[in-house]
Design a protein around this nucleic acid. Sequence first.
DNA 1: TTGTACGCGTTATCAG
DNA 2: CTGATAACGCGTACAA
Lengths: 344, 344
Amino acid sequence: MAGVKDVARRAGVSVATVSRVLNDSARVTAETRARVLAAVAELGYRPNAVARSLRTDTTRTIGLVIGDILNPFFTELARAVEDEARGAGYSVVIGNADERADRQDHYVRTLLEQRVDGLLLCPTAEVTPLVRDVVRDGGPLAFLDRTLPGLDVPTVRADGTAAIGALVAHLAALGHRRIAFVSGPALLSTGRERTAAFTAALRACGLPARPEYVQAGDFQAASGRAGAARLLDLPEPPEAIFAGDNLMALGALDEIRARGLAIPGDVALASYDDVPWFTHLDPPITAIGQPVQELGRRAVRALLDRIDGRPVEPVVLDARLVVRRSCGEPAEQGSDETEGRLPR
Amino acid sequence: MAGVKDVARRAGVSVATVSRVLNDSARVTAETRARVLAAVAELGYRPNAVARSLRTDTTRTIGLVIGDILNPFFTELARAVEDEARGAGYSVVIGNADERADRQDHYVRTLLEQRVDGLLLCPTAEVTPLVRDVVRDGGPLAFLDRTLPGLDVPTVRADGTAAIGALVAHLAALGHRRIAFVSGPALLSTGRERTAAFTAALRACGLPARPEYVQAGDFQAASGRAGAARLLDLPEPPEAIFAGDNLMALGALDEIRARGLAIPGDVALASYDDVPWFTHLDPPITAIGQPVQELGRRAVRALLDRIDGRPVEPVVLDARLVVRRSCGEPAEQGSDETEGRLPR
DNA sequence: TTGTACGCGTTATCAG
DNA sequence: CTGATAACGCGTACAA
């Protein structure tokens, strides 16, 4: 494969000059520039980014480790991150942790060895030794969507506390008193936050917080189904089930359908995370939507700020309740802004 | 950041020895190996993959350029590719072409400059000059899902011809005679193949092929909605709409719902590509499912074969019809194997 | 078994 | 404005 040397020879100049026109770093005669460019085209020269990176100690690349590539929330997030990064001249390398700490670490390690300029991490566990080390060594890290307690790392996330409060109030207003939650893992900040917000919201509405009405899941569909099954098997099953993410809502839906139960007649259903198809179910699913695009954009900006040594402060955006009909007919229903919404 | 040199000094050995234990290439005393490993741990040494790649001319990395990261078909594909690659000791770098030829080329170029060992491409257009060059130069390329005419490149894909034939026969058996198709782009092999199979299937069933019943889309939801709108606005609207992929099916669904039409009473709906939530709609959507996991695995194996200089032949798997209820009640319905299926 | 020294393709420094 | 050359971090002949 042709290198700068070949190009130089063919253009009748030195390698230094070739490098200069390729990076338009210094002033070069229009004529020699043309000769070089011609040689580049003729030889089909492709710059070797590996060598370039070794020399410049920069890869123009950022890593993104997401929780689960099959989860639409994360793919939408990845999309937003990628768009913003591309705009800034960076490539994004995505690692799919599959909600496993070991796989997360695998990618963190690999990406660091690849010498990415920065790393966006949606942590899958409390904290692994590797992540602790990276933080200690001041690696170019930022957290996205999820936080890690006690670590001083720039974080971009959405807070669902208010929206969950609104959801529980909505359920209570519709007459539901036995409200259950299929939670995410307690190891994740998002899992904990949503559970805490849920119990606080119950209290605020004067509803009892029954421990058996909080079932632990792992953000995967199967656990949503299992959690719903346990809830529906209770001597006194809940009147409403709130799933901690869209995958678990899908699982809960599976279980509810399998039992031939009606929504919201027999049991109401709501979900954290909003996805396009929620709108098409009968009834459409009430959900809490996160500002995913904005999350992605802000995360990239925060990371680039950190890379460039600019000061960066945490970003917390708000999630919001989208009322549809899966929890019962509201007395007075606002227009559903996402009705008929199309992805992209 | 610590390098081999630092490790060597700390362990009291030469850099060569360090390199040897890191790659367990040659015989090293157990004792020195231990000393080196200790030094590595103490210094928190992280091998520089960039330098290593420059030296070895191999990155243990493959590129994957997909059509659209928001399309569940592609994310599932990416997942399968990643799993298989990881098993073989390779990392996967994903590029999202967003169904645009320019963006596809951007990633092909970038990945090539990054010196990936191989490149899996789901081509977004007939053929771009860049792709032509890469093929001509014998770049380590394989096509996935989509094929490019007249190019001698290993290809792994699914064929839907038989399944589409079965679908049209199914529709005809249910009494539908005016059957329409929202096609993918004619520039894509998958778009062309499905359209050809559709018209052939009509003919096989003795149904007329009306040109106005084939509306061109681009595999994105918005075009599915627009295509459905044009069809439903026809003086003689179709009794059944078959969408060329799951995103366009979502769009068509949007349009049908917006018009207050009943499925399948007013219009039947079917989709190419099967997704988990199809099962939960009322009625559940009849679809054609591809063996996505297998596609991903075979693609990686084919690419690695090519990289290692082993002979590789094209792989064509079969898609299959999954009958649900969105086209009407079949006289005799087989069990739906994917009912209640959970992702992962 | 271990050490020395060269080179991978590029950019950046320093002369000219 | 252009050219010669050192250096980036690592792997590997070759020598010891």
